[in-house]
Design a protein around this nucleic acid. Structure first.
Lengths: 207, 207
DNA sequence: AGCGTAGGCCAACAACTGTTGACAGTCCAG
DNA sequence: CTGGACTGTCAACAGTTGTTGGCCTACGCT
């Protein structure tokens, strides 16, 4: 796991095994950065190891040596800690706004989420990872603020649908009106939705 | 353009050119059906012509002869008329519910939308087509019911984000809580959201 | 019946993919 | 200084992909 802030050179690998930093750690980081970019831009299949290696200005065989195979490279590329805080101190009636704003923050600072979304759509491992992230980040919040704990998973799913949908139309499909929307505008529109999904009473079936 | 209802044998091709039905029309339809299934299940790159041909129990070269190349096949596979009606007769305050229900209908009856979503995420042509569909289906409704016509594109984008997000989590990523939700429950939760995106006053920037 | 033509299959192609192994330079510990 | 481990390069592999052209068959019109 590495931090959200994009890599401070001596990151990542040396913490996994607790040995001293290796000479190749810089190369490793370069590969990972190139891989994230390619996966985010092209998805799993079209992000070829050769293209990633070319971006990183090294030989494709290095990628194999350091990450085993393509799946290993992808796993390493998305192995980051997203640390959604949404601390307990947020008043219940603001949880929607805080959550939406934080989500937009993370998404715009980090291309890993775009990569994950692009890959998850055609790759089962990516889909599971994405589900894991959202469950892990959303469930605690839902459990804390929603009226009936039993409904927490459903409410988390509803929030996910709205958040991922915005990410999809804005950052992946790039629908012009969604791209043109100002960050604050998005927050203003989505916050009440998320707030309702998390805290409102369960609506009757249709009406 | 063929109709939404899955093919009545004498469909499609013969209407494009107005000649008499050919002996090969059945094969053409079989190929198209197999292609839709594969594209929906695997996305563009992993849906190989060979696999599609195997599903249709014909030779890969036939696919090429009838559809030119893979892009042509994909274009033919997604060339359907989705005919979202949402007629003018719907009272303004019900437009959200009607729209959500209709959307779920179309989505569950038709694997083409799943194919389009899977492909659009990594393929520019697919993304454009999807955008075209949503603009064409959503803009008229937005123009009719939203307070300020100038905001119609933004509101349509917001609705798209919620609808596509639900489709993504439920039909593509298959988040278990999203899959388990009952159709009526989804409609009950999403309808007010869509209603608000379409008809409510523009909210202030954050608050 | 005979024949043109459309439907279908087979084999092959070039390009590209992930992946591997052998080889050369370079650093550091002894 | 010398050995061994590490970093990096090159060339090649086996498999798969989209795509092509030639060939045989069988229908349907005259």
């Amino acid at each position: 796991m590495i931090e959200t802030d994009t890599d401070s050179d001596t990151t990542a690998a040396e913490r996994a095994r607790d040995t001293a930093p290796r000479r190749s750690d810089a190369t490793r980081a370069t590969i990972l950065a190139a891989a994230r970019e390619r996966f985010a831009a092209d998805g799993y299949e079209r992000a070829t190891i050769r293209a990633i290696a070319r971006d990183a200005r090294i030989d494709p065989s290095m990628v194999m040596r350091y990450y085993g195979n393509k799946e290993g490279l992808f796993a390493a590329a998305i192995d980051i800690d997203l640390r959604l805080p949404v601390p307990d101190t947020v008043p219940r009636e603001d949880v929607g706004r805080v959550f939406v704003e934080h989500f937009l923050d993370v998404w715009e600072r980090n291309e890993v989420l775009t990569a994950l979304l692009r890959v998850g759509v055609t790759n089962a491992a990516g889909a599971e990872r994405m589900q894991g992230i959202f469950k892990q980040q959303l469930m605690p919040v839902a459990l804390r603020v929603c009226p009936d704990p039993e409904q927490a998973p459903a409410r988390a799913a509803l929030v996910s649908s709205q958040m991922l949908g915005m990410a999809l139309t804005r950052y992946v499909l790039r629908f012009p009106p969604a791209v043109d929307l100002h960050r604050d505008e998005i927050a203003a529109w989505l916050a009440p939705t998320v707030q309702r999904y998390l805290t409102a009473a369960h609506p009757g079936r249709s009406d």
